[in-house]
Nucleic acid binder design. Structure first.
Lengths: 215, 215
DNA sequence: CCTTTACCATAACCTAGATTAAGAAAACAG
DNA sequence: CTGTTTTCTTAATCTAGGTTATGGTAAAGG
């Protein structure tokens, strides 16, 4: 397992000297998690940020009646965490699960704090990522308040062209906030209406670079 | 107009020397905006962060059919901005309006960037605020996906006890994502059921300190 | 003082999407 | 290759919340 994907990501935002890269990487712990395996479960304290080197993670919660609500996907090149729990070091409510066999780098909370002091540029890196996440999160809020399920799916399609063919569609339904049944119906209407932009393998250029999920 | 509220807020997160405080304050511009006045409108580029010294702001968007969707309130002691526009310096979609006569401090984007370099502690300050905002935004997303309108109102009540008696309830309705009519109906049922926790002047201790809105 | 402009309440009706319940079709394990 | 599990589809019924409409009260404002 190598750090190339992560270092590339860092270099999109800040410039680190080879020594700084070295120092950063010393704090990383590799981890493999099999399909359906968990990196975190409700009630646990999130003690690491996870950087997805390969694979796909999802973060979701359960409501009172056991319904899943998918807060975020994290394909390769994304960070993931239960942010509430990570920042506050209180027990969180998120499950973080691998949707396929996945390899991640763990960055311990402690190390992250230390790195902010050792290499202030990293504070900038994570500030910018959090800013982007916040914008994305607010946009999703607005979309949930003001757009129909179909429009939300169209957004999703633009934002995550790759995921559509890679993850079961019930998870996509959960992300945009509808039941799998309704999602299926919606899709059927869609095809009937000739709006043929549904599953065809799209421009496979990875997820849009401005989309993040955490630090 | 004095900077005490803002400096107090800063000191909750970082310690600045008197000189640093002075340097920070030199970049601030005071502004008064009357009730219903706008600090920003759709299509404009957001060139400042706004710190509410006194009064209340709201940030909202319009959908295709002219419906308002309230993204955030900012009472005294909160930061406000169209974050997408501020970060990207592209035209935004938010209206930022005063709900009562309001006094704000403007922190120009340029100055903010410069201050990150001059006083790295400020980068930390804003990083932490953005982190908290992100957690709040994600929580609100989860709530919108998994809780009923009534539960969302209960949350709101806990989170913004003061606002309830200070702003017209149609705005609260918009914030939690229902129409004013439905909100009214809900409230009526509520009272009928004897759940008498609706408008009584609650513990007036200001908004919970962990709730933010931006930097 | 009277008018206008917010703001709030109530009620009848309507629709997007939930829920429940099946089956069909993949994916997967043995 | 066969049995099992997971995923997808379809369809009937149901409900939370939206829409439209109408009247009422409070408070700006001339």
């Amino acid at each position: 397992m190598d750090t190339s994907v992560l270092l590339q990501h860092l270099s999109d935002y800040i410039e680190l000297t080879p020594q700084e890269q070295e120092h950063f990487c010393q704090h990383l712990l590799p981890k493999k998690v099999a399909k359906r395996g968990f990196l975190l479960q409700t009630g646990q304290i999130c003690r690491h940020s996870f950087f997805v080197h390969q694979g796909i993670l999802r973060g979701y919660t359960l409501d009172q009646s056991g319904g899943e609500h998918l807060l975020s996907f994290a394909p390769a090149g994304w960070w993931m965490a239960d942010l509430y729990s990570l920042f506050s070091q209180q027990p969180g409510q998120l499950f973080i699960q691998a949707m396929v066999d996945t390899e991640v780098w763990l960055l311990p909370k402690q190390a992250q704090e230390q790195l902010y002091l050792d290499i202030p540029k990293l504070e900038r890196y994570f500030r910018i990522l959090v800013e982007k996440s916040l914008v994305a999160s607010q946009q999703r809020l607005i979309d949930n308040l003001s757009r129909t399920a179909e429009e939300r799916y169209a957004q999703f399609e633009r934002r995550f062209p790759d995921l559509i063919s890679q993850v079961p569609q019930k998870y996509i339904a959960s992300y945009i906030g509808v039941t799998p049944e309704f999602f299926s119906k919606m899709r059927a209407n869609w095809l009937k209406r000739g709006n043929n932009s549904v599953p065809k393998k799209l421009s496979s250029q990875g997820c849009l670079p401005e989309a993040f999920n955490f630090p």
